[in-house]
Design a protein around this nucleic acid. Sequence first.
DNA 1: TCCTTATATTGATGATAGTCTATATTAAGC
DNA 2: GCTTAATATAGACTATCATCAATATAAGGA
Lengths: 119, 119
Amino acid sequence: MAVHIDACQYKIMNISKTTCCAPLLSGGLTPDEAVNLAAIFRVLGEPARLQMLSLIATQPNQEVCACELAAPLGLAQPTVSHHLKVMHQAGLLERERRGTWIYYRILPEKLAMLRTSLA
Amino acid sequence: MAVHIDACQYKIMNISKTTCCAPLLSGGLTPDEAVNLAAIFRVLGEPARLQMLSLIATQPNQEVCACELAAPLGLAQPTVSHHLKVMHQAGLLERERRGTWIYYRILPEKLAMLRTSLA
DNA sequence: TCCTTATATTGATGATAGTCTATATTAAGC
DNA sequence: GCTTAATATAGACTATCATCAATATAAGGA
């Protein structure tokens, strides 16, 4: 059975593999780098996802169970699952299964990489 | 005659006015802040726009004439005009008319603000 | 095995937005 | 005023994507 991956997801999956990124203001951004970098910014270009990151950051253990996100965000469970998947594939979150639950943590290196890309 | 402004543009226009932004990882991002911050990231979530910024940064005077962008990017003139408008409204670019031509410069403060928002 | 709960996937829908052609506007020079 | 060149806008088309209800899968306990 073939796994279906659309163009956008494939693009996002490649992000984690790329070392990325020539600082924007230093110039010389290649078209490929632009595509990869833009894909990550597009992931952040969604209020619900930013609030998820903020919520995770406020937790004492810096992690959150997926089941805890739907209520404060006012979103349906599949929507939360979708956003978590997008951010995980973009390399912004790491996930760990503990029993029935799945916990997500922020990968600060990815955010640091974005910060330098804006320098 | 009424000026037509759609919801997205209105959101973007508000960005420049907002002081913004509680650092993401410090938590406590309000829904409004999330909307404003996401709107700016969405502006950066477009390869063509990132390449425009990169192109401007490589210029000796740190500025570029709108007329010089279409060719290297392989885009039509109205498309370039659209992207420049979006970035200008988002507070990423400043514009100066000199005769028939319009020159754009990057506003580094806005990028700095984004960097801190990722901290 | 069955039941319950958590998470993921599917498929549909509506909204957003990037792109183009065609046209309008603006500015400068004659 | 007229002409030319630069920029902006309008409108159409398309692709992407956020969202949901419905359903499937995964994991643990009785």
